[in-house]
């Protein structure tokens, strides 16, 4: 049950996209996110959809798997859609009491909703096709220029690595404790909100104790191996950019050019 969460999960594979340098993928994702905010009309989504479709196709991650990741944020999407629908002023379409749905509102709602969905799919794709360890290595490398200004890049990356590393461990721990308490007759599923919150105590207390124990053990193990963060640490597998990374950068620039020129209305005369 609890193991089925897909957001932020890695989908094992060996596609062209999986093998790209993590740094390139992170930059790509940033460019993608920014590009979504440059788009002004529905036409602008066409290059985005085509690109996203291509990436998903090449990566070999099943679409069903990606859409599953949307489930937890479904409420946010619905909320955005509703607020936009009712709160935009313009030509009234339907009036229900004091609420008015305007033509502009409907358009805005659909537009924002699409943006949100694309935003989430795009960014979840990054973690789906990049091993967590490569991801944090990439972040560290990308942040390292700022190290001279006092930014603790290595420590930040290490913290992220550890946090990511312990997501499955803590999920497993939760699953185990939940089952143990269910075997003692605990009920996590029925009752009103207050009762349900109360029923979480037998789960949360042991979980916190476990988390602290795990953290302490890890700290001790790192200490025992003389871990000192930051300077003078080298890597066994250094990150080297390859030809395909260059190709990915060129594709990224092409994509950006298409989106910007569309936003500037340069294609206006063709459509």
């Amino acid at each position: 049950m609890i193991r089925d969460i897909t957001l932020g999960q890695f989908y094992p594979g060996n596609s062209w996209i999986h093998r790209l340098d993590a740094r390139i993928k992170i930059i790509w994702t940033f460019v993608y996110i920014i590009s979504l905010f440059l788009i002004q009309s529905f036409w602008g989504y066409i290059p985005v959809l085509v690109t996203l479709g291509l990436i998903i196709g090449v990566s070999g991650v099943p679409l069903k798997f990606i859409l599953k990741g949307l489930k937890p944020i479904f409420l946010i999407i619905v909320f955005t859609f509703t607020v936009n629908m009712f709160m935009t002023k313009g030509t009234p379409l339907i009036e229900i009491g004091f609420l008015t749905i305007t033509e502009e509102g409907l358009y805005n709602a659909a537009f924002m909703g699409t943006r949100l969905v694309l935003l989430i799919i795009g960014s979840s794709l990054l973690t789906l096709v990049t091993k967590p360890i490569n991801l944090t290595d990439g972040i560290e490398k990308l942040l390292s220029p700022w190290q001279k200004l006092g930014l603790p890049a290595h420590e930040l990356a290490m913290m992220m690595t550890i946090a990511l590393r312990f997501i499955p461990t803590l999920l497993e721990e939760t699953d185990k404790i939940m089952k143990a308490q269910m075997a003692r007759g605990a009920d996590f599923e029925s009752g009103n909100i207050l009762n349900r919150a109360k029923s979480l105590i037998p789960l949360l207390v042991p979980l916190f104790i476990s988390a602290f124990r795990i953290a302490q053990d890890l700290a001790m193990a790192m200490e025992a191996r003389c871990y000192r963060g930051g300077s003078h640490r080298t890597r066994m597998n250094g990150m080297k950019l390859k030809k395909k990374d260059g190709a990915a950068v060129i594709l990224m620039l092409l994509y950006l050019a298409v989106v910007i020129s569309q936003a500037q209305g340069l294609f206006g005369r063709f459509i």
């Binding site: 143990a180 308490q181 003692r184 007759g185 037998p202």
Partner: peptide, 25 residues
């Protein structure tokens, strides 16, 4: 069912309350 390392499921303030959890449920 007694799981492996069952001591990790203890959560109450006192031993009495913890053992009573199952019967009360």
């Amino acid at each position: 069912l007694v799981f492996q390392y069952p001591e990790y499921q203890l959560f109450e303030e006192t031993v009495h309350k913890d053992v009573a959890f199952g019967p009360l449920n």
